[in-house]
Design a protein around this nucleic acid. Sequence first.
DNA 1: CAGTATCCGACATGATACTG
DNA 2: CAGTATCATGTCGGATACTG
Lengths: 134, 134
Amino acid sequence: MEVTAPVSRHSPACMKVSQVLSRIGDKWSVLVIMLLRERSRRFSELKRGVEGISQRMLTLTLRNLERDGLVSRTVTPSIPPRVDYELTEMGHSLAEPVQALGAWAFRHVAQIDAAQARYDAEVGNLEACEQTPT
Amino acid sequence: MEVTAPVSRHSPACMKVSQVLSRIGDKWSVLVIMLLRERSRRFSELKRGVEGISQRMLTLTLRNLERDGLVSRTVTPSIPPRVDYELTEMGHSLAEPVQALGAWAFRHVAQIDAAQARYDAEVGNLEACEQTPT
DNA sequence: CAGTATCCGACATGATACTG
DNA sequence: CAGTATCATGTCGGATACTG
């Protein structure tokens, strides 16, 4: 169960873990995963669903997810072409801890906001006090 | 319990959630949090503990965590100065889902690696077939 | 429709040097 | 010791245009 202690925090495995975390951290992956959690979706459907995303970034995001084995890509050679994306089993299993993290974030949004506001106010004050012109 | 569905994926709250996820995703925050999970630590201790991190990035990481209210900073004005960092209660509560995610990542490292290798092999093949020189 | 290719600016990060 | 300041760089991401 222990993850960080026994692997000494610098083992190759730990590096890999960091990579996975990075994927989670990037702006779009989680959104896409959450969208695909309900059901498989087409490219354009995802594009509409995520809303801020550029075509390029959606492509790259899906590529990475597919590369990691989290999403499967199914091409239907028709005219116009149709490509469906779906969470793999591993993708679904990832969605759970991600969801847990999302739930935590959701619960603490207000508290974090408050902390930030307080911090910024203090920093602002300190900066205002600094009268060291050169 | 539902996070994404009822908030329509584009509410301001959801944006905030993304911010939190970004913090998790960045290379160092999680490492620092994990280190602080055991006990409070001094700046230089963290620097040694994380190992790849530059002084600058450790400072910035700690700053952000402090701003978010996840870490508390305690200065002991001595010579030489001493600064201790400690997870706040909220920081500790965040560590749990993060740990869960880390555990997932750890369990699936091999599978992800395999998926990547397979994907790269396929892409390599496809690229090798592409004989379209201009 | 579902991409790919290219250009470009913004930001993140590392290295280095200096300070209380 | 615990930072801060500055500079250089590399990656990320958006906009745009083109393709099968």
